[in-house]
C-alpha cells in the first residue's frame, strides 16, 4: 500500500491537488517532487464548447511538491510553482513580415496550494478528507494587455473527499475516486470537482502506470468573463473533462522520475491543448 500512497503523490498535477486518493503518508514520512509542467495552446474551447483559434500562448511551471506525514492520519501537502512563466507569441503579418503585436512574457511565482489530508476511515475502502487553500501568489495582469497570468488572483478553499481501494501482490493496482467543492473568491465562480484514477505497478513495482479522469464544473455564480482579461487556464467559469496518463519509474528505492500528459476531452473557456509534465521525486523518512 505504501507504493500506492507514493504513486498518488506523483499524480498531483501542477494545477490541482484533487486527485490525491484516500491514503495518507505515515507519520514522519515525506515525498518530494520537482517537476516541470507546461501547456502551449493556439486554440481554446469557447463558451459553446467549440474550438476557436488564438495567439499561441504558453504557461510553464517549475513545481515543488511535498507531502509530509504529520501523524498516522494527517498529511500536510504543499504544491508550489516556484517559477511560472506565461508568454504569448509575436503576431506577424504574412504580407509584410512586420510584427503587428509584439509577444510578451511574465515570470513569477505561481499560485501556491497548501492542504491537509485527514484519513478518517481505513480498511478495505479507506476514506479521507482534504482541505486545500489556494493562495493568490501569482501575477494576474501582466503584459500590456493585462492578459498574462501566473495565477488567478483569488483565494480559494476546497474541500474534497477521497475513497479508493487496491490489491495485487505481484502486480499491485489501485483505483480511487474523489469529489470536491471549490469555494472561490474575488467574483470567481465556485466549482464542483471530481476525479477517477487507476494505477498499475509493473516490474516488481519499479514502473507505475496510471490514468486519471478529472472534471471541473463551474456553478457560474461569479462574474462573467467580460470583466476580466484572463485567458489560458485562469479564466473564470472554465469547465473541462480531462484525461491524463502518467509513467513513474523508480530508479532507486527512494528516487524516481515521472512523465505525464493530459488533455481535455471537452471544455469551455479553457485552453485546448495537451499539458505535459516531467519530474524527479524523492521519498524518505
Amino acid at each position: 500500500m505504501k507504493n500506492i500512497i507514493l504513486l498518488i503523490g506523483f499524480s498531483i498535477s501542477a494545477q490541482v491537488l484533487l486527485a490525491g486518493g484516500p491514503w495518507p503518508q505515515a507519520k514522519g514520512d515525506f515525498y518530494l517532487k520537482l517537476s516541470q509542467w507546461w501547456v502551449v495552446f493556439d486554440q481554446h474551447y469557447t463558451d459553446q464548447g467549440l474550438l476557436d483559434p488564438n495567439i499561441t500562448t504558453g504557461l510553464h511551471n517549475t513545481n515543488f511538491y511535498a507531502e509530509y506525514g504529520l501523524g498516522s492520519n494527517l498529511t500536510a501537502v504543499v504544491n508550489a510553482p516556484i517559477f511560472s512563466r506565461n508568454y504569448s507569441n509575436n503576431l506577424v503579418s504574412n504580407t509584410t513580415q512586420d510584427v503587428l503585436i509584439a509577444g510578451e512574457a511574465i515570470n513569477s511565482v505561481g499560485d501556491i496550494d497548501l492542504a491537509v489530508k485527514y484519513s478518517f476511515a481505513t480498511g478495505k475502502i479507506p476514506l479521507s478528507a482534504t482541505l486545500l487553500f489556494g493562495l493568490p501568489t501569482g501575477k494576474t495582469n501582466g503584459g500590456t494587455q493585462g492578459n498574462l497570468q501566473t495565477g488567478d488572483g483569488e483565494f480559494n478553499q476546497m474541500i474534497s473527499l477521497d475513497a479508493g481501494f487496491g490489491g495485487g501482490e505481484n502486480v499491485p493496482w489501485y483505483v480511487s475516486a474523489s469529489v470536491g467543492f471549490n469555494n472561490r473568491t474575488n467574483q470567481f465562480s465556485d466549482e464542483i470537482r471530481g476525479g477517477l484514477e487507476a494505477g498499475l505497478g509493473l516490474f516488481n513495482k519499479r514502473l507505475w502506470l496510471n490514468s486519471r479522469l478529472q472534471m471541473v464544473e463551474s456553478l457560474r455564480n461569479g462574474a462573467t468573463a467580460e470583466t476580466t482579461t484572463s485567458t489560458s487556464i485562469f479564466a473564470n467559469n472554465s469547465e473541462y473533462l480531462s484525461l491524463g496518463l502518467e509513467v513513474n519509474l523508480n530508479i532507486t528505492d527512494r528516487m524516481g522520475v515521472s512523465a505525464s500528459v493530459a488533455g481535455a476531452l471537452r471544455g469551455e473557456i479553457i485552453a485546448a491543448a495537451p499539458s505535459y509534465s516531467v519530474g524527479v521525486f524523492y521519498t524518505g523518512k
Partner: peptide, 16 residues
C-alpha cells in the same frame, strides 16, 4: 527544461 522553456516565437496572420 525550466530555463529553456517558453521562448516567444512568431505566429503569422494572413492579413492581405
Amino acid at each position: 527544461l525550466a530555463v529553456f522553456a517558453g521562448c516567444i516565437k512568431d505566429d503569422f496572420i494572413d492579413d492581405r
